[in-house]
Design a protein around this nucleic acid. Structure first.
Length: 423
RNA sequence: GGAGAGAUGGCAGAGUGGUUGAAUGCGGUGGUCUUGAAAACCAUUGUGCCGCGAGGUACCGGGGGUUCGAAUCCCUCUCUCUCCGCCA
């Protein structure tokens, strides 16, 4: 959520509208007028309470002096003030509630480097690893390769849970485990501290990262216990720091975690959800950083390089996009997407989004630090996948398949998975 | 699932309904002393909101109530802990 300071900042709002090619002026002016009446009401209320406090003290003293009559007189006055402050309090709460609702509707202000644009067609390709291999005769898509080598059984997944819950078998399962280890090791070597967080979170955590209330339909909700299955490790990991004032000396705070991710993906269907393209449950290793505002864009660049290194080790054709304003997710100011090339499907698959949220998440989380002057300031938060497994597996299978149908495992991950070929 | 106890500042831990934002200890910060350090001593040390400032106001798990006045009394919700049972 934007800070009120940002909402009052003409330049920022201009940038928001331009980059996202959407006009938020209406909501902005509503928030501003709410903010003004909020201040006014707050002042009235404070004055009212101040008087009541003074009177209470006087009443106490009068009682001590046994001046009952004078005390009773003041009591009446106090009752009046009480009525008044009650009304003001309700008014204030109503204003704050509506302001909050309005603030939830405004996405983050995109960074200056972000291109103005509406959707993915305006995204910029900023890096490409090489030529994308053309379609060849006899190339199998990953779901057929998975079946041929008995790596994944989608039908049995349906039997056990439903569509979108694959059952990994034998080397397929082993590959998952190996990749998770490989990613975690790679991240921890780069200084990320490893966490294994809860896979279910409470409502407060969902609100902290902005998944609630806006994206409620995307999460699985266990109503009996009022818990939500996490859609990404970002939720539990970022919430570690909810309501914290962290020591600026500990910047940057670097976290990594493996978790399964659960997404309802209501309304998705067709070829785009075939095989491993889109699932209700998938495995992912996430990286999160919390930094000083001055450092966050350097950090962002570093995270992009970090993920790039991972892609290189997997020996997959990939590219990096800088998302345009309209395609940049709600909470993000700058997002680079990593996509791998699916050789058999002849299309790009997103495997990582590296985002800088600036203070957008921190504001909701109340995640702060103390600056040189001892003032509390909001931190910047960033995160990215390193990496999401299913599409990586899809690309590995498709890109490393040989004419005889066997699949080579990239050297870097062989020690982690324990075999160098699937045949 | 059964029984009980509790929730107070970074932590530990007090708190007769009336200058209590809250004793005390530890920790943190600044200082004195010291060649330096330790010790000792002194001072300082929560967060939000309003205000240029002085200052004001709110917050003792959440919500509601009683009262002129609530950390303190009442109701309610949530959570945590201990014991028993069950269990990887």
């Amino acid at each position: 959520m934007l800070t009120l300071k940002q909402v009052w900042d003409e330049e920022a709002i201009q940038q928001l509208n331009d980059k996202r090619k959407k006009d938020f002026s209406e909501i902005v002016s509503q928030i501003r007028s709410n903010d003004e009446s909020r201040k006014k009401t707050q002042q009235e209320l404070d004055n009212c309470l101040q008087q009541a406090n003074i009177i209470s003290k006087q009443v106490g003293e009068l009682f001590k002096k046994k001046e009952i009559e004078a005390a009773n007189e003041l009591k009446a006055k106090s009752s009046e003030l009480k009525e008044q402050s009650k009304g003001l309090q309700e008014q204030l709460r109503a204003i704050e509630d509506s302001m909050q609702q309005l603030l939830y509707k405004i996405p983050n202000v995109p960074h200056t480097s972000v291109a103005a644009g509406v959707d993915e067609s305006d995204n910029e390709v900023v890096f490409e690893s090489g030529d994308t291999p053309a379609k060849e005769e006899g190339l199998l898509p990953h779901w057929e390769l998975a079946k041929k080598h008995n790596l994944i059984d989608f039908e049995l997944g349906v039997k056990i849970a439903g569509a979108g819950f694959p059952l990994y078998i034998d080397k397929g399962a082993r590959l998952q485990r190996g990749l998770i280890n490989f990613f975690l090791d790679y991240n921890t070597e780069a200084g990320y501290k490893e966490y294994l967080p809860p896979f279910f979170v409470n409502e407060a955590s969902g609100i902290g990262t902005g998944n609630l209330p806006d994206k409620e339909g995307q999460m699985y909700h266990m109503q009996l216990d009022d818990l939500y299955a996490i859609p990404t490790a970002e939720v539990p990991v970022t919430n570690i720091f909810r309501d914290d004032i962290v020591d600026a000396a500990t910047f940057p705070i670097k976290c990594t975690a493996y978790t399964p991710c659960f997404r309802r993906e209501a309304g998705s269907y067709g070829a785009h959800v075939r095989g491993l393209n889109r699932l209700h449950q998938f495995e992912k290793v996430e990286i999160v950083q919390i930094t000083h505002p001055d450092a966050s864009y350097d950090t962002h660049g570093e995270m992009v390089e970090h993920v790039k290194g991972l892609m290189e080790k997997l020996e997959l054709p990939y590219r990096i996009l800088r998302l345009c304003g309209g395609d940049t997710t709600f909470a993000s100011a700058l997002t680079y997407d990593f996509e791998v090339w699916s050789r058999a499907q002849q299309r790009w698959l997103e495997v990582s989004s590296v985002s800088n949220f600036e203070t957008f998440q921190a504001n909701r989380l109340k995640l702060r630090y103390k600056d040189e002057n001892g003032k509390t300031q909001l931190c910047h938060t960033l995160n990215g996948s390193a990496l999401a497994l299913p599409r990586i597996v899809a690309a590995l299978l498709e890109n490393h398949q040989n004419p005889d149908g066997s699949i080579d495992i990239p050297k870097a991950i062989v020690p982690h998975v324990g075999f160098d070929k699937i045949s």
